[in-house]
Design a protein around this nucleic acid. Structure first.
Length: 162
DNA sequence: AGTTCGGACCGTT
DNA sequence: AACGGTCCGAACT
């Protein structure tokens, strides 16, 4: 697993690449105690990095990315991957509730499990878990911090209840 | 209107 | 067996 940095106006994101594709994306750490980075990406990974950079910047601007790198989601359960795949169908500016995602997966009562799967999402932004709100149209939770969730939604033109 | 409370639900560890 | 990025209705203010 190789690590790369993506600089944006909102801070430096951390991207993790395997031989299969992008495996992880981390929000900028408040304490940039960044460990050592072996930036020895191979050529395929360098291409993925550029695609990832453009995709991240697009989403930070509230827009749909033109392209995404291949995603490598090794340690996800079948249910989690089903949730993550469903999330990728939600375009910018659109939100669903945890329960709605559960129903789309034919597990109408699994709203809480959907929330847990969102929390386990290794690639935020590209897998847009920030577009999933509580049923009362309030924010719900977010692993990366609710301020991030609110900010991302605002950039997409979504207004959220206090 | 808004808020709190309790129970029920599901997948993961 | 216990815990969550939940949900809904009921019972409040």
């Amino acid at each position: 697993m190789k690590t790369a940095i993506i600089k944006t106006n909102d801070g430096c994101f951390v991207a993790r690449f395997t031989e299969q594709g992008l495996a992880g994306l981390e929000f900028p750490a408040q304490s940039p105690a960044v460990a050592r980075f072996d930036n020895q990406l191979d050529s395929a990974q360098r291409a993925w990095l550029k695609t990832t950079e453009r995709a991240v910047r697009a989403i930070l601007a509230g827009k749909e990315p033109a392209a995404c790198p291949p995603l490598d989601l090794p340690k996800g359960t079948a249910f989690q991957r089903a949730v993550w795949r469903e999330l990728r169908h939600i375009p910018p500016g659109v939100t669903r509730s945890y329960g709605e995602v559960a129903r789309a997966l034919k597990r109408p009562l699994a709203a809480r499990a959907v929330g847990a799967a969102c929390g386990a999402n290794p690639i935020p932004l590209l897998i847009p878990c920030h577009r999933v709100l509580a049923a009362n149209r309030r924010l719900g939770g977010f692993s990366g911090g609710l301020d991030w969730k609110r900010r991302l939604l605002e950039r997409e033109g979504v207004s959220v209840n206090a």
